[in-house]
Design a protein around this nucleic acid. Structure first.
Lengths: 242, 242
DNA sequence: GCGGTCAAAACGTGATCACAAAATACGGCC
DNA sequence: GGCCGTATTTTGTGATCACGTTTTGACCGC
């Protein structure tokens, strides 16, 4: 497995989640959240070698919380182990990419539809969420124009999960998050190859329109088309190098 | 959260997986596998309180491997944490059950279809797998007749995963396994309420027939009907007590 | 420049200890 | 029997150390 030799440098891009109780977040929860964001946003490319000790040093903690965070992310498919149990960001293959695409198509339109159901007949709630998504999408468009692939990755997941979280469906959300964790690192590599200009044709405005209209079929189609568009880009990025 | 006070007693029902390298399986891997099986087969009911120390004592290991196994199973949704970070088997609600059912319907027919594709035109391979499934199903039928709910739970998952593993689709397999881990504990409770006789109408023979014939549409339908049947039973089991 | 050898460094893992917080048990009181 | 206060037990977590294995780098010979 290719082991990147550049020193580990993970840039914070958001506050860790709050705590589960009065204690404040456990250190391992904070490490998990920061590492999760780094992976999902593609700061770490597929195959990138990591270790308990290097992550502990990077986050300024001892080995224990780093180990717990690694185990958790590995269970979600974001990290994987070599034959000798070294840790690395999960690698990508064409076959795995196809699986991820199919699984996303199987789950995300349904999750979006659940979000619509959860919002119910409350047009105000739909409008509020639509406004939020539009705001994120506008910032996203600026990131594309500026060629800022890091911001693009972060905002794209922020857009989708703002919608998906509205579904109040933790089982589905957990599955979808696992898929995004496995896709994120490679997505970033692809964006680096193709440039952000290749990302302009998303279906985000269609998503927002369908949400506003309360049109379930159109929302599912928009999500499905957005996934296909994104995966088409990824496939092009794949063949452009290997 | 209801904390069961009965001492923890987890019965082994299969050998832990082999190792990833020359070292043999790590202790935490063995603990994970045993705990995973206990959860999936319903030896531990939803809401059952666990702890790092009690699991460590039960498995005769130190706290570290128990913690790693817990973290991994929690990431898969099989275990959950209380507000003060105590550990318990994930509880069930009608809403969560509905989600699990929908997610299974979204993923498992497609995974079965992938298994068929992976076997290809090799009629011999299909026949071999079909024979294996039939053998498992026959043992399953005997467990039903004998009212052995523990054996039923184990054999039912063995049947399904023998088929799903043939798909060579680790992304899908991981997602489906997570769903089964979340369903297993409650399934067992329900079987205890309704009795194994309620389980006779599965679609396993239809699955085997469709597999033999290489009939993708029928295989998907059989898996879908089997899931619906199982979930109908679960819903009945739900309303029979709460 | 390449291959082999060896020593050092790095690694994952398990064990243990300590600490603070939470849960439980117990006794007294009403 | 329930409530309250207190003491005890249990808990999760983080730190550290040790061990065995793997990896890496330096060195030497060709």
């Amino acid at each position: 497995m290719t082991a990147a030799k550049a020193p580990l440098r993970i840039v914070a891009d958001g506050a860790p989640k709050g705590d589960a109780g009065g204690r404040g977040a456990a250190v391992h929860e904070a490490v998990y959240e920061r590492l999760r964001r780094a992976i999902m946003s593609g700061q770490l490319e597929p195959g990138r070698a990591l270790s308990v000790r290097s992550l502990a040093a990077e986050f300024g903690v001892s080995a224990m919380p780093a180990r717990e965070a690694i185990r958790q992310l590995a269970a979600l498919g974001a990290l994987e182990f070599t034959p000798t149990r070294r840790v690395a960001v999960a690698h990508m293959t064409p076959r795995k990419l196809s699986e991820l695409c199919d699984a996303r198509l199987a789950l995300e339109p349904a999750l979006a539809a659940r979000a619509l159901t959860a919002l119910g007949d409350d047009e105000g709630a739909r409008e509020k969420l639509a406004a939020k998504l539009l705001s994120i999408d506008e910032t996203l468009d600026r990131a594309i124009e500026q060629g800022d692939s890091a911001a693009y990755a972060r905002l794209n997941s922020e857009f989708h999960f703002a919608l998906y979280e509205a579904a109040r469906a933790p089982v589905y959300l957990g599955l979808v998050e696992s898929l995004w964790l496995q896709t994120g690192p490679f997505m970033r590599v692809v964006i680096g190859r193709l440039g952000t200009a290749a990302l302009e044709d998303d279906q985000h405005k269609e998503v927002v329109e369908a949400l506003r209209a309360g049109d379930r079929a159109k929302l599912e189609t928009a999500i499905r088309d957005d996934i296909k568009q994104g995966m088409t880009n990824i496939a092009r990025g794949y063949s452009s190098n290997e």
